[in-house]
Amino acid sequence: MEHQKANLYLKIIITILIIVLAILCFFLVQQYRTISQQKAISAERFNFANLARHHSLGINEINLIEPWMTFNYVSISYKVPASYLQTMLGISSSTANYPNITINHYAKTVGTNPNSLVEKIKNAVQQYLAQPRK
């Protein structure tokens, strides 16, 4: 009787695990489809010859700017001069450690909402990237 009970419990646990496995595989396929659409996984990105080349971010990646980032990081990754951001956002030249401060920290210093500051940064970066380059 005890053996039969133990076997039954094992069967139930195995069944539940198989169902959970099926659900996780479904989510995995969904995630893979999303990444495939974004062309994130491609052989070219992992080509050793390309590894020396930097992939700077462009207009299509502006939405990736987050309050935890520093102005220095935004400047380097989007190839936008830190001085341009300083002028466009009205950041005082006496701001300590600029551009090596986080957007969050600067927003708290000047008493503004970090998310609205991020929107202003996105607009500034977008305007700069939209300018014709020589």
């Binding site: 496995l21 595989c25 974004q38 990105r45 992992f46």
Partner: peptide
């Protein structure tokens, strides 16, 4: 390095894969 800005999406996939392998 290869995935760049898509790293966050990839880390979700690796977590899922880890759970699938464990199960």
């Amino acid at each position: 390095y290869g995935l760049g800005v898509y790293t966050e999406a990839y880390s979700d996939i690796t977590k899922l894969l880890g759970w699938i392998i464990l199960i």
